[in-house]
């Protein structure tokens, strides 16, 4: 063990930045509190790391929470082997740069049984290569707490998810029987084999995530930014055409265009959007514009009864 503060400070120590606005600061404080509480109360935590923007924010908050110490738990990446090439490169760079313990797990059934998103359909593929793989990795590591980047605003069913979400030994979630969560006092008592998923970003919205990435200058996989990229159109999606395993179907051609991705997953299942937003400022501007334009549209309509129905007929909804 190194003996002085200088030697033990985390690799690539932080640079001084302007203070966060109180809104983001409050969200950050809450997330750091959750990280520290879980790290203190559980024997073997792990952080699920999916390489996307939410994971990048989660990792940044973990580094802040434990500074000047290292992040005291490993990062777990469930690799389906069908991720974007740039994601894997980014993952390895980040692990090296920030001196992280990275655990990568792939469900061996993928290779043994030749399970691909093309051959088995997205539902079965996802179930085996993501859900089952995650269970395998959590069991193998004996983790009793797993941090995740889920947000309550993502969808209705998440709106009632707890910050400490309890799981049975076979990883089942019983929404009928969730523990009440009052104030910021979290109940971390579990029996052997039981575990919790902990969600430090529960109260963040998508806009908060992007604003925080901007304020804290958090590096992201370049695929979030628009660039001239090859793609094929399939089932109404634009699929990135750079991986030799993508076989063109009859009638498909590789096209070029300015595209980017709003979310990142397995490349055959992740559609791009057309966009010229090639940096963070422009991405945020796109997000805000989409909101503002719709709001303006509604502001005009709100007191003219029937106009909403008209818009609906035009396909607005």
């Amino acid at each position: 063990m190194p003996l002085s503060v200088q030697e033990t400070e985390v690799k690539n120590p932080p640079v001084s930045r302007p203070p966060l606005d109180p809104h983001l600061k409050a969200l950050e404080n809450e997330a750091i509190h959750i990280f520290r509480e879980v790290a203190a109360e559980f024997e073997k935590p792990v952080m699920l790391y999916s390489i996307g923007k939410d994971s990048s924010v989660l990792l940044h908050l973990a580094r802040k929470a434990f500074y000047p110490g290292r992040v005291p738990f490993p990062l777990l990446h469930v690799d389906t082997t069908w991720k974007f090439r740039e994601m894997i490169e980014f993952r390895d760079q980040i692990a090296e740069k920030y001196d992280l313990d990275l655990v990568v797990h792939t469900n061996p059934r993928g290779a043994e049984e030749g399970i691909t998103p093309f051959s088995h359909g997205s539902a079965l593929y996802t179930d085996i290569m993501k859900t089952e793989a995650l269970r395998q990795a959590l069991d193998a590591g004996g983790y009793d707490a797993a941090f995740g980047g889920a947000r309550r605003d993502e969808e209705a069913s998440r709106a009632k998810e707890r910050i400490y979400s309890f799981r049975t030994p076979d990883h089942k979630w019983d929404p009928r029987n969730q523990r009440p969560e009052l104030w910021n006092i979290y109940n971390g008592m579990v029996r052997k084999g039981e575990s919790v998923r902990a969600f430090p970003l529960s109260n963040w919205t998508e806009v908060d995530i992007w604003r925080y990435i901007q304020a804290e200058d958090i590096p992201l996989v370049p695929l979030y930014y628009a660039a001239e990229r090859p793609y094929v159109e399939r089932d109404g999606m634009m699929i990135l055409a750079e991986d030799p395993r993508l076989e063109l179907l009859p009638g498909e051609t590789v096209q070029q265009g300015m595209i980017r991705f709003r979310t990142l997953g397995c490349f055959p299942l992740t559609g791009a959007i057309r966009s010229t937003a090639s940096n963070l400022e422009e991405v945020i501007a796109e997000l805000e514009i989409a909101t503002v334009s719709e709001r303006q549209g509604r502001a005009i309509d709100r007191d003219q009864s029937g106009s909403m129905e008209k818009k609906k007929r035009e396909g607005y909804f």
Binding site: G271, A272, I273, R274, I289, V292, S293
Partner: peptide
């Protein structure tokens, strides 16, 4: 576009 559509730029709020 076959995918989600983003409206053109304007001054963001």
């Amino acid at each position: 576009s076959p995918s989600a559509t983003i409206l053109p730029f304007a001054e963001p709020l």
